[in-house]
Design a protein around this nucleic acid. Structure first.
Lengths: 327, 327
DNA sequence: ATGAAAGCGCTAACAA
DNA sequence: TTGTTAGCGCTTTCAT
């Protein structure tokens, strides 16, 4: 450390923290010594003393889907702007991994946690969150949890999307979703049900437990053969990708063979032919907002009751739903 | 801490670390006390003592592009498997941010660093890496740096791709790239040059400093008007996205108006019409390999000279290049 | 087999 | 204005 360097002092700390006054010359000498020997303060030791780590943790279900990636990017930027680092973890959608990753992060003394919870009944981490540790959930609130949350209204968004398909005159609308036990999935499906019920139509729901089961063959058997749909809605990005791939394999064409709507928009949706209509989640806004809420708590600006922010989704109407937009 | 709990001991540490022998009963009592009071050891304190943080840092240029996202996901999984956490940072492609983020991570006492360097001449961080800190670079090696690296052969991959276009008989092939000062960009452009030179054709290169300048208007003026190309190759994912968007706006069609090839493949490339031919980088393998190399160093398994791993790319031939694949 | 005590690098309270 | 000292929570000799 700088103490033995050039000058003599544990006052190094003072100049670093700009606490108290330091005589001109001394300060300069310290700075000089620090840069000469490339001194970098040990944040671990600082954190140990200050009882905080200047780090936040973020846990997502899948780090690589574009929605998560945007949220992560936005959250990291906010963290950096606040002088914090972002520790990234993944639950993979499994409750036990979620739990152990949270415990791990707590052991690292993170000052706050951003979690996109699994949301299954088994997913409950209230008991392991230390009192006073700020937590913000993304995507969904947690049962009995008194945390801030930032999400979209999955149910209404799905309902609105299905409503739109209904307005086009489709009757045999199939909803396709993976991992129905996830909160987002179940809410979106609920929205679908509501729309269908209101139209007095039979709900047609194709669920698959895990992504790898959503194959072309599965589509043929469970979707096309059983329902002969005139429209379908996929309930998340992965689902849309896999369905699109499967449909190509079985030579079903969007638009001509059936209408299509995707929950989750992506860069290329507008470039497909027909272009894909989609429900767009403001992924980066979700990440940024969540991080901002978290820092409001961490810095003690926000002492109020829990806040739940619901960001609006946007129904992007392109061609695949039957619209004729040419944007 | 557990000391005041139930029993009396600094032996708590011993049972935690499973060092030394502990009497049956004592061990049980300690465990009981720990779980009863939900004790989680403070990793900061541990790290301070052990002089390591059990954390690695990862710095990418853009956290949200799908290539980075896959690499991050893979690296995080390897880190977790090794009991390490992953601190994620972004350079945004700026040399000064890269530097300050590295310094920040070093202050956090990370045990290793995964960096996808900017690669501009100004990007040189050798001077701030402490002796003995393992570093693995992704995408490119660093000048004068003695680090392990994992990459693809950008130049040859680009050359091969252009060669393929040439074999189709195109002559007016334009290369489009953003941020030419980035190593990956310049290498790919170099590959393009080599292929064109070999065919004794005039190189046609359209560069744009930053992504937001790549607009439809820019495409019209600089690309179509100036070169009237019969084929083009975009040198990275962002570039492909923007170009595709721009072309749609100016009503240029892939396939009929000109052939197209993308450096960087993505989920939907095969679903466009015409489907996009692309150079595929093994993003997750890059991330995983890099992390594995890093842990070989961290755990001292690897004492050898620097290793440079070059992973193979794959030229995915679909339709947009002029091929007639129907996969 | 277990307790006592020193110390990791830093900050903060107190003295000088 | 600057130096001294104790202690953050843990691990690790060294005694017991």
């Amino acid at each position: 450390m700088a103490r033995e360097a050039g000058v003599s002092l544990e006052t190094a700390s003072r100049v670093l923290n700009e606490s108290y006054e330091v005589k001109e010359g001394t300060g300069a000498k310290v700075h000089e010594a620090m840069s000469r020997m490339g001194y970098v303060p040990n944040e671990l030791a600082r954190g140990l003393k200050a009882r905080k780590s200047v780090a936040i943790g973020m846990i997502m279900k899948n780090l690589s889907d574009p929605f998560a990636a945007s949220a992560i990017k936005a959250a990291q930027e906010v963290a950096r702007a606040n002088g914090y680092i972002l520790i990234l973890a993944s639950s993979g959608g499994y409750a036990d991994l979620e739990r152990s990753e949270i415990e791990n992060l707590i052991g690292r003394q993170v000052d706050g946690l951003l979690i996109s919870p699994i949301g299954s009944p088994r997913s409950n981490f209230n008991d392991i969150i230390p009192l006073g540790l700020p937590v913000v959930t993304l995507d969904q609130p947690i049962r009995d949890g008194d945390y801030d949350s930032v999400m979209i209204n999955n149910r209404l968004s799905a309902k609105g999307a299905v409503q739109h398909l209904l307005n086009h005159g489709y009757h045999r609308i199939v909803a396709v979703a993976t991992r129905p036990y996830l909160h987002t999935s179940s809410e979106r499906i609920a929205g679908y049900r509501e729309a269908m019920k209101r139209a007095v139509l039979e709900p047609r729901i194709c669920l698959v437990e895990s992504e790898e089961l959503l194959t072309a063959q599965w589509l043929s058997e469970n979707l096309f053969y059983r329902h002969s749909p005139d429209a379908m809605i996929c309930m998340n990005w992965v689902c849309t990708m896999l369905t699109l791939r499967g449909m190509k394999q079985v030579r079903k064409r969007l638009g001509t063979d059936l209408a299509f709507l995707s929950f989750d928009d992506f860069e290329l949706a507008g470039m497909l032919d027909p272009s894909l209509s989609a429900v767009r989640q403001p992924a980066d806004a979700l990440g940024a907002q969540a991080a901002r809420l978290l820092f409001d708590r961490i810095k003690g600006k926000d002492k109020n009751k829990r806040r739940s922010i619901v960001l609006p989704t946007e129904l992007i109407l392109r061609e695949s739903c039957g619209c004729n937009h040419s944007s």
